[in-house]
């Protein structure tokens, strides 16, 4: 009975992850379209960040499905997928730091390239790194909101804040069903964070 509940929860987890991945892909697409028109490099970096994030999410879903279909041989694959997922998230957040940093003239694309290498130069405590990076992103988006006071900037600030909450909740070790519920809460926070970006996109795409 309990194993059925666990499998049902894993399915919910995967559905949430797939939808979140699709939303991240949509943001990436619109940022890329915006880059195509404006040639603003930061929009290209923003697009790359969301693309890396969505690829990590889809990778985790595929890895988990592989685990569910062949659990006996999937240990190593799942281990790699989990580490790769954490690394890809960190890469995405590092790119967001450079993309959402205000100020144009001092910006160089080399920052984004250096940010991509960050996960390989630091400790394996991926969630801690992700949290630290996200704190910077959240503060930058808060400053942006304080500066422009638009609802679009508020959605972005709320989105990144929820992603931060998701990582804080995600630090808990899953040892039983109760702790898995907390982990699901972190997945839900991540989903709501990306949903906030989706609402922002929808609002921004409206004709006046």
């Amino acid at each position: 009975m309990q194993s059925q509940i666990v499998f049902a929860l894993i399915r919910i987890d995967l559905i949430i992850e797939v939808v979140a991945g699709i939303i991240a892909l949509m943001v990436s697409h619109y940022a890329n379209v915006a880059f195509g028109l404006t040639r603003q490099k930061k929009l290209s970096d923003l697009s790359t960040g969301f693309l890396v994030l969505s690829a990590g999410m889809f990778g985790r879903v595929i890895g988990t499905l592989y685990f569910l279909t062949d659990p006996a041989n999937a240990d190593r694959v799942l281990g790699i997928v989990i580490v790769a997922y954490g690394v890809m998230k960190i890469m995405a957040y590092a790119i967001f730091i450079t993309a959402t940093h205000r100020g144009q003239r001092k910006y160089h694309s080399n920052y984004a390239m250096a940010a991509l290498a960050l996960p390989f130069l630091t400790s394996p405590e991926l969630d801690v790194i992700a949290i630290l990076l996200l704190i910077v992103v959240v503060l930058q988006t808060l400053m942006n909101y304080a500066s422009v006071r638009s609802s679009f900037a508020l959605y972005v600030f709320v989105g990144f804040t929820l992603l931060l909450v998701s990582h804080i909740l995600g630090m808990i070790n899953v040892i039983d069903l109760q702790t898995y519920f907390i982990y699901l809460g972190s997945q839900l926070a991540q989903f709501l964070g990306l949903f906030s970006f989706l609402v922002m996109l929808r609002q921004a795409q409206k004709d006046e």
Binding site: L37, T100, A153, A204, E208
Partner: peptide
Amino acid sequence: EYRKIERLSQAFGIDV
């Protein structure tokens, strides 16, 4: 289209 892009960019603190 430009107005839409301006809103998206502004939301992330990017000047276009």
